[in-house]
Design a protein around this nucleic acid. Structure first.
Lengths: 414, 414
DNA sequence: ACTAATTTGTAAACGGCCATGACGAAATAG
DNA sequence: CTATTTCGTCATGGCCGTTTACAAATTAGT
């Protein structure tokens, strides 16, 4: 079976389909899936009014989706008499609708994460629930791609088997890596902390289902977009593991850049005459807010759980650590001022390792941003997803691909 | 007649239309218009293969567009015998197609520009030709909106009359202003050089046709996108009049930001401890590369034709001026390094006043960008449009709106 | 309890739109 | 002058959402 890359970037119903009746049908199937997925259980009539089609049209669309195993009928909404409270809309007159949900036994998105210190895989169903997971701890720093991906493949097989036991079938695999990924969504161009260069993960991973590889910062940002509460459709998601990466989300779409390298916030100049950086520049943000720089400024050694160490010391009142974090926050504020001026996002969200250090970073960051902004400053918030972001984002990207073009997976399945 | 704002942001055939057959029809009409407009004279068969529909379907679409006056039939392509060279494809066997062009007597886009030192209006037909124009020189600095817009309206009426004499009818008005415009595309939130604040131009301009107001930097960038040769679909267009503005174009769309304030490159921090800026920050790009800053660094006074003055002195070999421009170029390079890292555009284009000073700015800019970038640096080019960009971009935005949804203007017309 | 009103889901008829296939028209190739 | 190729059009057919009608299921009112 062929394994074309997912279109992680798509948000609305699949675009760029030919404008023929078949394309129309496919887009409308997608709109039904999106409506049901986003607005909880919905009757056919409710779906119809949501997406602007007639009940009759929605009926045929829903039939097709049920036959494909993507939607499930929960049966008629309880009127209120049977059993205890049926949970349906009370006080509404007329025949109750038959509630539809996205299937919990259909396709599953397999997400995987190659971290510097761990490997993780999970399976998410169409409802967004994590149904299986597997983790393997141990550093991958400097290891060759083959054995690492071999171990990851083992974890994937385990998770897939577990998911299949629950009646799910894998619709695709998405892998988050700590590095730059080419626009082909398969090749890791540069992953400094793994020391991988131009590595085609497509050749190393099982070819049984569609594969997407992307930067962990990008998947983290997408997770925030899809799973965060009150997350706007225009925001900047900043995450730091070792490097500092940002996901730029514009109108619900991830901005990838021509080569796929967008979001390299770590190398935005903060002080043009500052210390030299590996990128060739001087005074890049990473020289002030990167993990290594902060540890050095705090007078600490590089160890295993670096974020935990910093957070612990800061909680204990270690003034050196607190000062180092404040300064990192200030540098972040300078870099983000530039980004905010350029993009005018609705908000800035701190995720990944930054979320854990937020209490000490955010005050300095906010004040720097406010000081440099005319008018109301761009609101800064902290992600609830923490270190789970990239993994969840990866798995959900597969789920979104199914929602965006249900006809494709149904066809693949047939 | 109602006057809804144009969707300047749209590039492809109008999206967000309901996915019903009517919507399909509308989108296919748009695709025909785009194909004919972009690929020069085309036969029905050529259009069909371009947009992926059948000849029969295209025939009916073309008929409708011809009846609406948006397309014109040039008659059968000359076989090669009659008169002199007919210009048609030579050496091809088979019946020659009948060439189609976008109409030169249909709708016209009216573009207007409120500059600090002038007012300008022009009319552009669907073919992209400027068919009428009017200019009025004289400073508008500090004048109240009403008299200025009154004069502009006068120019608009003159241009519209002239266009109508040529058989065109105005399909909309787009106004470029040197300031921040709200997302309603009518209200000037802040125009420092005019000293306008929260001014609703919609109330001051004629309501006879749809109105769009936008930042001149945005229209300049769009002009580059639509009219520049070899302009990519992802680029940064930097222009400086008094402030420094950038248009961020992503995948052929202009990025506007939540409030419509995206592209404020002038207030990206270059040296976080630099001189104070009116925006509240310190060391903003404008403090180094803004017109006023450059003039001061060069030891010159603020006068009338500031750009011309600088260019003249630099050509004459004035070392103070040259140094000032080099330093401005370096500062631009620092700010653009940040932007390029964040957005990974295919290129950076210098437009507006910067285009005239390019010979002295670009070397320093390029070297700074290259020095701070790992791998190949983002190519920097200079716009050919010069100071005409915003005006042409405004007029063309109306034309694009017609191409994006021809059914709408045809309906308005009926 | 019984009727009226309301809402849901489905079925049949309708209309719009693009695809298919055939055909005449207009050119080139030999 | 004929065979071939390509263009534009017409008639036919199939797909798809809409319209209209109707049965089913519930609430509101008497």
């Amino acid at each position: 079976m062929t394994a074309p890359p997912h279109e992680t970037n798509s948000a609305g119903p699949g675009r760029a389909l030919p404008d023929t009746q078949q394309g129309m049908r496919r887009r409308n199937l997608a709109r039904v899936m999106h409506a049901v997925s986003a607005e909880g259980p919905l009757s056919r009539a409710a779906v119809a009014s949501h997406i602007g089609l007639t009940r009759a049209a929605v009926s045929t669309l829903v039939d097709e989706l049920i036959r494909s195993g993507l939607l499930e009928e929960l049966g008629p909404e309880r009127p209120g008499g049977v059993g205890r409270a049926g949970g349906a809309r009370p006080g509404r007159v007329g025949r109750p609708g038959s509630a539809l949900t996205v299937s919990g036994h259909g396709p599953a998105g397999i997400g995987a994460e190659v971290g510097v210190d761990h490997l993780a895989v999970c399976a998410v169903d169409l409802r967004g629930k994590v149904r299986a997971r597997a983790v393997r701890h141990g550093t991958n720093r400097g290891r060759a791609p083959e054995p690492v991906i071999g171990e990851l493949t083992e974890l994937v097989r385990r998770v897939v088997a577990e998911a299949e036991q629950e009646g799910l079938w894998p619709a695709g695999l998405a892998v988050a890596v700590p590095g730059l990924v080419a626009r082909d969504a398969r090749t890791v161009v540069r992953a400094p902390n793994l020391d991988w260069h131009d590595t085609d993960l497509g050749a190393l991973l099982p070819a049984e289902f569609p594969l997407t590889v992307d930067n962990e910062a990008n998947f983290g940002g997408l997770a925030e977009l899809w799973l965060g509460e009150d997350t706007p459709r225009d925001f900047l998601h900043v995450s730091a593991e070792i490097g500092i990466g940002a996901a730029v989300v514009v109108d619900g779409h991830l901005l990838r850049g021509t080569r796929g390298f967008a979001g390299e916030l770590g190398h935005v100049p903060v002080r043009p005459d500052g210390p030299e950086c590996a990128c060739g520049g001087r005074g890049c943000l990473e020289q002030y807010a990167g993990e290594e720089a902060v540890l050095r400024a705090a007078g600490l050694e590089l160890g295993e759980d670096r974020v935990g160490l910093l957070a612990g010391r800061a909680t204990d009142g270690d003034e050196d650590v607190r000062r180092a974090l404040r300064e990192a926050g200030t540098a972040l504020g300078v870099a983000l001022t530039g980004a905010v001026n350029l993009l005018d996002p609705e908000g800035v969200v701190l995720g990944g390792a930054l979320a854990g250090l937020a209490p000490w970073l955010v005050p300095a960051l906010r004040s720097e941003l406010a000081r440099r902004t005319a008018g109301p400053a761009c609101p800064v918030s902290v992600s609830r997803l923490g270190s789970e972001g990239p993994l969840l984002g990866a798995a959900h990207s597969v789920v979104r691909a199914v929602l965006d073009d249900p006809a494709a997976v149904a066809a693949d399945r047939a």
